[in-house]
Computed example of a mutant assay.
Amino acid sequence: MTPGSRTESGRLALGSRRVSRWLLSRLAGSVFVLWAVATLTFFAIRLIPGDPAEAVLGGPGSQASEETLEQVRRDYGLDQPLVAQYLQSLGRLATGDLGSSYALKVPVGELLAAQLGGTILLAVVALALAWLIAIGLSLWSTTGGRVAASVGQGIELTSAALPHFWLATVLIAVFSTQLGWFPPVSTGDLRGLILPVVTLALPLSGFLAQVMRGTLLDTLDSPFILSARARGEGEIGIRLRHALRHAAIPGISLSGWALGYLISGAVVVETIFARPGLGRTLLQAVTLRDVPVVTGVVIVVAVVYILMTVVTDAASRLADPRLRLEETR
């Protein structure tokens, strides 16, 4: 074996060890996040006034007898100490058992599987639209002079501060009631998806544009940009080929958080637009004190957030060669 081959083998072995450590740290962090989410959800849902046994029987209006309530408590383990209920809940979650819905009497896994697709579609399309708006706004505000910079900054601040419920109400009033372009509630087709997507995307786009604009301005003063200008490359090519990629790195790193933000916003949006999904399911479950459904929704959202964080971390390394260089040292 030549010295060069030994050196290359050593680099590959070092790279494999670094990837293994990265995966192990991600796995340990994911387990901790899921445990923390399950724990906080378990105790928080029990702070809601009411008896879980009544939720099993259909709510306070069921007028169930005390004997029936006692039987339900025994059947569901609600008569045991809180710590014992907590440990049993963790044990079920560790095996992938989310339990059955108190209100609907169906497995939580099946219920969430039927609702997950709609929420993920809504969040992913909204994230894509938010990125398109943020890229366009940041490019325009950094190339259009002082007026464009001032107007763009105002648009970014205003968009980032818009509450979802207020924006949804305005969009329905303008584009549904007055203009009649889009339906005010979900219809299951593309037209029924547009207003919910815009409602979620606009506030996020303002935040992403703020992050990208600041990074883009710093990147345009970097030495490699000055070198590109010295080679005679045009300003459009510099921004699209060089500066934009570096400016997008902070936004890419925040995309995992952004997806979680969009899913949490879906609670409001899906309720206002009567759109089926995890957000609307979560709101109904909290109202009915349906503990297994609430826990299941939160766990699923946490898993989606973890997966998205891993993907965005990998995308950041692909977009930024400096991160890959640090890993090989």
Rank of each mutant, 00 (worst) to 15 (best):
V301E: 07
A168V: 01
P52Y: 06
S159G: 04
L12V: 12
A285F: 09
Y76F: 14
V267E: 02
V198A: 14
M212I: 14
H246V: 01
V31F: 03
F42M: 04
I155T: 12
E233F: 11
S253C: 02
T142Y: 10
L220V: 09
I48W: 03
V268I: 15
E66I: 04
V293P: 08
A149N: 08
L98Q: 03
T143E: 11
A274D: 07
E54T: 11
I135Q: 08
V125D: 12
L137T: 11
T2K: 05
A148R: 12
A201D: 10
A274N: 13
Y261W: 13
A28H: 01
V124L: 15
T119K: 13
G91Y: 02
G77K: 04
A258W: 03
G117R: 14
K105E: 09
T119M: 11
I48L: 13
V124N: 12
A103G: 01
L179P: 02
V297C: 14
L93C: 02
L34S: 01
R329C: 07
I252N: 01
L323F: 12
A160C: 06
S205D: 05
G99P: 03
S227Y: 06
L12C: 02
A168W: 01
R46C: 05
V56E: 07
V170E: 01
A266N: 09
T309A: 11
